[in-house]
């Protein structure tokens, strides 16, 4: 399990290092093929989940528990931010909650928050939500082992339907594929709604 995380961290760190040093071909930097790598990955995940002998059992297991995943993400994130606000009383509640409400969906949340609150908070939202995604990618093997198989889904937040889906399926098991997709879809829809709601409450 530990080995899985180490290999993933290794590839990620190598990418950052080569990127900073500029030791990557211009073409990779200009066209950013990570999107295509993701598309490829999603097809592979589809095939390996769809090709599983237990596929029909997994589909039939869809039930009310699925709703508990996004509820846990929202409640857990806001609880964590509430603790943060108690420890750092100088921070603005609405702004901190809005950054948390990105749930890993950094592209949309950072653009939205930049417009509502300014570029500085936008960059914080971008970084905080990238961290959420990267953390999930890197530590899913450990999360699934020590915090239960639901933990990677909840940690991934809105990203559990695409970028973090492959690691979740690999380490929590294929039976968590549908709950991860459901969780991601619900949160992806809720991110813009919750962020705008927070700002309308604050003004």
């Amino acid at each position: 399990m530990m080995k899985g995380s180490l290999i993933i961290v290794g590839f990620f760190a190598a990418g950052i290092f080569l990127g900073i040093e500029g030791w990557v071909p211009e073409a990779i930097v200009r066209h950013d093929p990570s999107m295509y790598a993701l598309y490829l990955l999603i097809v592979f995940v589809g095939i390996s989940v769809g090709g599983d002998e237990k596929f029909m059992h997994i589909v039939r297991s869809v039930n009310f528990r699925y709703l508990l995943a996004p509820i846990t993400v929202i409640a857990g994130t806001f609880l964590g931010i509430a603790v943060y606000l108690m420890l750092f009383p100088g921070e603005k509640a609405i702004e901190s909650l809005a950054v948390g409400a990105g749930f890993g969906y950094y592209s949309l949340s950072s653009v939205l928050i930049s417009q509502l609150s300014g570029k500085t908070l936008g960059i914080i939202a971008l970084l905080a939500n990238i961290i959420r995604e990267v953390f999930t990618l890197l530590f899913t093997p450990l999360l699934a082992r020590y915090f239960g198989k639901l933990a990677p889904v909840v940690s991934g937040g809105a990203t559990s339907m695409d970028t973090t889906l492959p690691v979740i399926v690999k380490y929590s098991g294929k039976e968590y594929a549908f709950i991860a997709i459901f969780n991601g879809i619900v949160l992806t829809i809720l991110v813009p709604l919750l962020i705008s709601l927070l700002y309308s409450l604050g003004s």
């Binding site: 590839f11 990418g15 950052i16 990127g19 900073i20 500029g22 990570s34 990955l41 592979f44 095939i47």
Partner: peptide
Amino acid sequence: FDRLTTWSIYLLLFLMGVSIGTNKDII
């Protein structure tokens, strides 16, 4: 395909690292 999934996870992470490392705003 299960094995290909594992290797594409590594590829994706490497490429994400590259795009963060080459993004001057973030660095």
